[in-house]
Amino acid sequence: MKGAIVINVASDFSDYPTGRYISDSPVSGQRFRDEFLIPKLDEAMRRGEKLVVDLDGVQSLGSSFLEEAFGGLVRSQRAHRKAIIESVVIRYSWAGNRIYENMIKRYIANA
């Protein structure tokens, strides 16, 4: 990995992200995508770096939040699906978060 831009979901956004749309919650998937994922992914791709999404410290990850954030990233057409898959790295310490990594990958693949 040449370099990386890191988003720590818990400390940069919320330890209880929830909801799909901004109308659901101030810490929704839509807001996380628009204010964090898209600009940071743009920056990472410009620099030829990875975008690391760190899940440590997050207390809940509902499917609505994850799908709108990561599936919505594909639907936003800011980057090709393949480029998103290659650029976005999910990082965590607790092995149980693998479930959420798999959900994210599935949402990106199927959006």
Partner: peptide, 18 residues
Amino acid sequence: PELMYLRSAISEAITNVQ
């Protein structure tokens, strides 16, 4: 740490209500 699964499910239950 496994309570994460239940917290996430509750988060979804709330979104479902909304």
